[in-house]
Structure formats: structure tokens, C-alpha cells
Design a protein around this nucleic acid. Structure first.
Length: 416
RNA sequence: CGGGCCGUAGUAUACCGGUAGUACGCAUGGUUUGGGACCAUGUAGACUGGGUUCGAUUCCCAGCGGCCCGACCA
């Protein structure tokens, strides 16, 4: 993509009503546009990032056997009345049609997936099964806050699983827990699987996945030696205590942001919708269900919060909107322009996604924009680099600037 | 939902009971060109509705909208 035709432009100042770092940077760099409190549109750059995160999530969910589908977002109120959530869950948006029919806009999809599953699950042979979707969710939050991290509309991956025994559920649960940790790692984040309350429909503990960041809304206690971590709301330990899990480490307290949650739904929804299967003996049984969520758009916000520096966003390679940011410092020099055009073309032929800053603006502005936008690798072509016989390569996250000979540039980029 | 703060060009801001000034942006021309350069000209604004007043962007009330703290958070 040539930056001269990129739809969005950067800006030097953030809107005064945005305090959250993620929103300030994402707006300044042209990734998102705020529609209203808690609702953002994702512009071309932002859409690319979301899609890259989705791709990682999709791969990991497929790897544990998840099958992707896409459910309706407009839900019949009847399904929500049937589970009791119509009255019990106050963040559900409720709307009324011209003919006074009532609907819910989906904030999660247990009420939809369970009736769907009822059509296809009849035997223990149909289990286990895991179904997931990625899409917009709506929650009637009393107070949206923290930029894209807590909105009324957001993107979430939600997976639902069905099992014929607690043991099988536990097996799958632990598999998904590992898959989640891989998702966060691939997104450049160190997440902690954190013990937390199971929410309003289960007494059991669930796991929340937490990323340490001051922008977070949760307080967690974690062991500085082993992987034990718990939300303070359920923790029996205090800051400074010796970890009861490993008996070596010390418990630390920190702010964190929740980027995923997995929990045991038991047989609640199966019973609400009379979803049963026949076991080996021919008896009717209710399956055990699990629910597994990852906030896609929140994850994007957390990545910005956790990795950005004073100059702007710093994307990990895995989610960056482009592989490289090619910057030409031509100042009207037609040779430089021709060389940069040629490199841009060749990079694309080698499969690299490149943002090519071909604008006729000064170097300082190009560099400042590149730093704000946060693409991990910057390539510079100028009279200087041509004279030196190479391309200047630098990393957004710091480190050296190196001059790489053109003959080896593609090899070089594949390695980093 | 309780409490607080706030609505002035696209963005950030200033002043003011007598109809708004600056910077950035944008447009045109010129000089520039490895860290947001400069000159000139131009463009564009008081959230909405009431009230007070000779006169309201300014004061008062309401609505709408935004942010923050708390509560809440499937």
C-alpha cells in the first residue's frame, strides 16, 4: 500500500476526550475512529491488525479441534427468557421492533449455540464437539472506558464445547488453556492463567487470562517464581506471602487486563434447552458444556498498552498491519524514487506486505509517522543508501540500524 | 446507576455580556528537503432548545453528548 493513497493520515494531537493510551495512539495513527462512547470503527490499518489477531486465534482454535461457524447477532428474546438471562443479565441489549417483538443483540451465544447443537447432537458418538465464531458482541455497559478495551460493541471469539463426561471436559479445558497461552504469546504478550470466580452461573473457579498492564481493570496476585496467579477477588493469599503452590516464590500484586476467559458451564444450558444425547446404554444424558472467550479488539488494545513507547505504537510482527514500512527520502530525486518504486514492487513479489511511504514530505515527518504507526521493520532508501549500496533496515522496537546490501535484502527480511 | 468535570473550525486551544484570535491541518504559489522547515494568500468554528438582557458564544435552566472516580463487569 502506498502511503500517499492510504485513506487515513496521522495527527499530532489526540482528541482531548481520550485519556487511554491505546485510544490516543490508535486514533492518532489512523487505526480507529470513535463513533461514541465505547464504540469504535476500525479503519484500514486497524482492520488489518484485527484480522491478524483473528488469524492467530483461528489457527489455535482449529488446532484444538474447534469448528468455526457464524451465528446470528440478532437473537430471539425467547431464548434468553428460557435461560433466565433476559432478566438476570443486565448488560444484554434489548430492542423492540415496530410490531412490539422483542430481540436481544448478542453479547455471547450460549442461547443460540445450544438450540443449534440440539439439532445435530443425538448420540455420545457426536461428542465431544467444539464450535466457535469470531464477531461483534454487544454489551450494555453502564460505563464504557479505557478506549477500545471496554466497549459496548467489540469483537470477540467465543467457543462452546459439549462433552459426555466431566473428565472429557477437563481434558479439553486444559487443552484450550494451553492454546490460549499460545495465542497470547504469538501476539507478543506474556499472559497469566489466573484463577477467578466463575461468574453468575457457576460456583466453580474459572480461568481468566491476564496481561500485566497498568491500564488493566483487575488486580491480580501472582507468584514471582512459579506460574500461579489469582484474581484478588478469589485469592486466599496476600501480597508478600510465600506462594502456597510452589512454596518458594513470593506473591506480588499487580494491575492486569483480562484478555480471555474459559469456564465450565456444567449442564445449565443443556437443561434449559433440553439438549440431550444417548449414552452407550441408551440413556438420555445432558452434555457438559464449556465456554471459551477471547476479546479480539481488547487484545489489540492491550498490545498497544503493553508495548507502545513514547513515540508511538510498537506492533509485534505477528499482528502488524504490514511486514515492513518502506520509507523513501527522495526530495524529488528521480533516481531515489525509481529505486524505491522498484524495491516496493519486488518486496511485494516476494510476498511481503509493505506500507510504502512515497509521499513528498520531509524526512522528519516520515520517521515520526513510521514510529507512530508502529510497523516493526523500517526500510529507508535515500541518496545516501544508494551511494552506500544498500538499504537501511531498522527495528521499531529498538536495536541497530543496519545497511543491508540489496542482493540480500529479501533473505534478511525473512530472517527477522 | 451515584458523584465530579467538560462541550469554541477537522484537531488542539485563547479571549469575551457588544457576533471570535492562534497553532496544526487542508487549498494555491514560491523557497526548502536524513528527524514534524519556511514565506505569502486562502479555507473553516461557539452541541441543541428555552430563559435573562437593548444585545448571549459568554450568565441561568433543560436536553443531548464526552471524559474521570466509584459501583458494575458472562
Amino acid at each position: 500500500m502506498k502511503q500517499s493513497v492510504l485513506f487515513t493520515k496521522t495527527r499530532k494531537t489526540a482528541p482531548k476526550d481520550e485519556v487511554a493510551k491505546n485510544a490516543q495512539l490508535l486514533i492518532r495513527a489512523g487505526y480507529v475512529h470513535k463513533e461514541m462512547a465505547g464504540v469504535y470503527s476500525y479503519l484500514p490499518l486497524g482492520r488489518r491488525v484485527l484480522e491478524n489477531i483473528e488469524k492467530i486465534v483461528r489457527e489455535e482454535m482449529n488446532a484444538v479441534g474447534g469448528q468455526e461457524l457464524r451465528m446470528a447477532t440478532l437473537h430471539p428474546s425467547q431464548n434468553w427468557i428460557q435461560t433466565g438471562a433476559w432478566d438476570a443479565v443486565d448488560v444484554v441489549f434489548k430492542i423492540k421492533s415496530r410490531t412490539e417483538k422483542e430481540y436481544t443483540i448478542g453479547q455471547s451465544a450460549e442461547e443460540i449455540i445450544t438450540p443449534i447443537a440440539k439439532e445435530y447432537i443425538a448420540s455420545y458418538k457426536d461428542l465431544p464437539i467444539a464450535l466457535y465464531q469470531i464477531g461483534q458482541k454487544y454489551r450494555d455497559e453502564l460505563r464504557a472506558k479505557s478506549g477500545i478495551m471496554r466497549g459496548r460493541e467489540f469483537s470477540m471469539k467465543d467457543m462452546y464445547s459439549f462433552h459426555d463426561s466431566q473428565e472429557d471436559f477437563d481434558r479439553f479445558y486444559s487443552q484450550v488453556k494451553d492454546a490460549y497461552l499460545r495465542v497470547y504469546e504469538r501476539c507478543g504478550l506474556a499472559a497469566k492463567a489466573t484463577e477467578a470466580s466463575g461468574g453468575s452461573f457457576t460456583k466453580k473457579l474459572s480461568y481468566e487470562f491476564m496481561v500485566l498492564t497498568d491500564a488493566g481493570e483487575d488486580d491480580i496476585l501472582y507468584c514471582d517464581s512459579c506460574s500461579f496467579c489469582a484474581n484478588v477477588e478469589v485469592s486466599t493469599q496476600k501480597e508478600g506471602d510465600t506462594c502456597t503452590r510452589c512454596t518458594k516464590g513470593t506473591m506480588k500484586r499487580a494491575k492486569a487486563s483480562e484478555v480471555g476467559n474459559i469456564f465450565d458451564l456444567g449442564q445449565k444450558y443443556a437443561k434449559d434447552f433440553s439438549l440431550t444425547y444417548k449414552d452407550r446404554e441408551g440413556n438420555e444424558q445432558y452434555p457438559i458444556m464449556g465456554c471459551f472467550g477471547i476479546g479480539i479488539s481488547r487484545l489489540m488494545g492491550v498490545i498497544v498498552e503493553a508495548l507502545a513507547d513514547e513515540k508511538g505504537i510498537v506492533w509485534p510482527k505477528s499482528v502488524s498491519p504490514f511486514h515492513a514500512h518502506l520509507v523513501s527520502l527522495a526530495s524529488g530525486n528521480s533516481q531515489v524514487i525509481a529505486e524505491a518504486d522498484r524495491l516496493y514492487q519486488e518486496l511485494r513479489e516476494h510476498g511481503f506486505e509493505v506500507l510504502y511511504d512515497d509521499r513528498d514530505v520531509r524526512a522528519g515527518e516520515k520517521f515520526a509517522d513510521a514510529e507512530l504507526i508502529g510497523i516493526p521493520t523500517r526500510l529507508v532508501i535515500s541518496e545516501k543508501t544508494i551511494a552506500a549500496g544498500g538499504i537501511e533496515v531498522s527495528s521499531r522496537s529498538g536495536g541497530d540500524t543496519t545497511l543491508v546490501p540489496e542482493s540480500t535484502i529479501f533473505e534478511h527480511l525473512k530472517k527477522i
